[in-house]
Design a protein around this nucleic acid. Structure first.
Length: 155
DNA sequence: GCCAACGTTGGC
DNA sequence: GCCAACGTTGGC
């Protein structure tokens, strides 16, 4: 098992669950991931202490898509209980072994780093999220990319 | 709301 | 295992 910290980007629609919701809740279970590649990243890579860029997708002109804050992984991956709950909107009748982790609020960026900002930056545009049509809701980023986003407005 | 990208499903 | 149809994501 790796002992170094890993860095991630996690996506959520702001109207569904935003960085402000996480700030209010402090810690929240990150459930409902139903994409095998994203599942594998969580299951095989996410560990407590890892940090994640919190990205709002499906933005609007006044609240554009981009990174709005930082979260920290505070649990090991565990079986996602919403996949087994027939009343849950993310119920999976096929019973695949989906996983979840608990995420803790760390901070909100002073200003969002929008997708447009990311695509303009030579370092940041290598991130998977900048690739056209990238639909992963959980993806790895490098330490340099993570710090590049966090420090975007401190230059 | 449109539509391109892309993951998933299912017929063969 | 191929691939067309279908459904969903997500930027615009």
């Amino acid at each position: 098992m790796s002992t170094t910290k890993n860095y991630w980007l996690i996506k959520s629609e702001a109207t569904c669950y935003s960085i402000d919701d996480l700030a209010r809740d402090k810690v929240a279970p990150w459930t409902g991931i139903r994409n095998f590649q994203a599942r594998n990243y969580i299951r095989d890579g996410m560990r407590p202490g890892d940090r994640a860029l919190f990205y709002h997708s499906s933005g609007t002109p006044t609240a554009p898509s981009g990174v709005y804050g930082i979260a920290e992984v505070v649990s090991e991956p565990y079986l996602d209980p919403t996949a087994l709950d027939v009343r849950d909107e993310h119920y999976d009748p096929k019973g695949a072994d989906w996983v979840a982790v608990d995420m803790k609020f760390v901070s909100k960026l002073d200003r969002p780093v929008t997708l447009a900002d990311i695509k303009k930056d030579p370092l940041l545009r290598k991130m998977l999220v900048a690739k056209q049509g990238q639909r992963l809701s959980v993806m790895p980023v490098t330490k340099e990319e993570f710090e590049g986003v966090v420090g975007r407005w401190e230059k």
